[in-house]
């Protein structure tokens, strides 16, 4: 592969504005466990259980790495899913006709540097991730920041539902796996 040698001048901001940092280690620890559990569902391909972690009005976003700050209504994204389309994406991935994932990739999500804020909308979390994806003997890595907006829920087995999940990648897909057929 011939690198272009170009580096975007933009760096994604991982710190939410308009929010108060949460220092209570009980809350932080519970958030960490929530994120790890979520990651395990994806790594184990328990996709329906993963979907059940989302609020009905949730959005799932992956911007392109050059335009980390922008809006899916005005900027080309890699993924902009509502619950309707995210469920469609999951249906596809469960099908044996999702050829790019048949046979399936093995993924491992490494989540670290977890920070939590209280915002008027819920708990804002930021964490650093590295997702390794193994398929056909090749290991690809995706690196970036997860942004989760978690809202409290009472009628569920989990303490929160995900209202917004944004995956800010540090690199283009060109240099990581070529395509993005897995969920990040």
């Amino acid at each position: 592969m011939i690198p272009t040698g170009l580096t975007s001048a933009t760096i994604g901001h991982a710190t939410p504005s308009d929010a108060v940092r949460v220092r209570d280690t009980t809350v932080i620890s519970a958030v960490c466990q929530f994120l790890y559990d979520e990651a395990a569902l994806l790594d184990e391909w328990r996709l329906d259980e993963w979907l059940s972690l989302f609020h009905p009005d949730a959005v799932y976003l992956i911007p392109t790495p050059e335009d980390l700050s922008n809006d899916p209504a005005t900027t080309l994204h890699l993924v902009h899913d509502s619950m309707n389309t995210l469920a469609g994406r999951v249906d596809r991935l469960k099908s044996k006709h999702a050829h790019a994932e048949s046979p399936r990739s093995r993924t491992r999500r490494h989540i670290t540097n977890v920070r939590v804020w209280q915002s008027p909308d819920g708990l804002e979390t930021r964490s650093v991730f590295q997702v390794t994806r193994v398929r056909g003997g090749v290991v690809d890595r995706y690196v970036g920041v997860y942004e989760h907006l978690l809202v409290s829920t009472t009628d569920s087995d989990v303490p929160w539902l995900i209202k917004r999940r944004r995956v800010a990648l540090d690199h283009s897909i060109e240099s990581a796996g070529g395509q993005l057929s897995v969920l990040l």
Binding site: P72, T75, L76, H80, G88, A98, G178, Q179, L180
Partner: peptide, 20 residues
Amino acid sequence: LDSYIAFQGPAGLATPDDLE
């Protein structure tokens, strides 16, 4: 934009299968 990225692009529902 939504209907474009549902179909095409590296994370679309069709393009990864074309690449595969």
